[in-house]
């Protein structure tokens, strides 16, 4: 039988996707914060952090982690919610950002948090001639923009 390691578990978790943005995995998003083995209880402790406080995807993600680990024959684990340090889009992987762009969502691009009307480049044509339509979009993590060149509306994943 293969010996379980943190890396093995991490690679299994890398197949769990965000229910609202299915091109991103929870490891792309930086949601998995820690994996460690509790020797006393002989149990893996997986720490995950919420993105937005009220994000309805979080409960779904916990369920999917459970299902995925069970289906890989792992049952001695518990999931712990960790709030600190607070999640930030800085933890999103570069490959995650690339996948978002291909999916039609402009990735977070501004290191200075809180300036969502700074132009996000259009994921369709690359133009930076864009304007903000709405600070709040279809999910907590996104704003809605419009490209003034190709005229397509698009979502922008807000810096957080």
């Amino acid at each position: 039988m293969e010996i379980l390691t943190e890396n093995k578990i991490l690679s299994i978790l890398a197949s769990v996707t965000d229910p609202e943005i299915p091109v991103l995995t929870i490891t792309d998003l930086g949601i998995v914060r820690d994996i460690k083995f509790d020797e006393i209880e002989e149990c893996w402790e997986i720490s995950i952090t919420p993105t937005y406080s009220g994000c309805p995807a979080m409960d779904m993600i916990s369920t999917q982690i459970r299902m995925t680990l069970f289906s890989n024959g792992i049952s001695n684990f518990r999931i712990k919610q960790q709030l600190s340090p607070a999640w930030t889009t800085d933890w999103m992987s570069d490959s995650g950002k690339e996948k978002l762009k291909k999916y039609g969502i402009a990735p977070p691009n501004n290191p200075d948090f809180g300036i969502p009307d700074s132009p996000a480049a259009c994921p369709n044509c690359g133009s930076s001639n864009t304007s903000l339509l709405s600070e709040f979009g279809s999910t907590a993590c996104k704003s809605l923009y419009k490209c003034e060149d190709c005229l397509e509306p698009f979502d922008y994943f807000k810096c957080h």
């Binding site: 406080s53 709405s134 600070e135």
Partner: peptide
């Protein structure tokens, strides 16, 4: 858009 903004804020607050 504003309906969505306000309900997003509600979600944050309830969270």
């Amino acid at each position: 858009e504003q309906d969505i903004a306000l309900t997003n804020i509600s979600l944050d607050l309830i969270g």
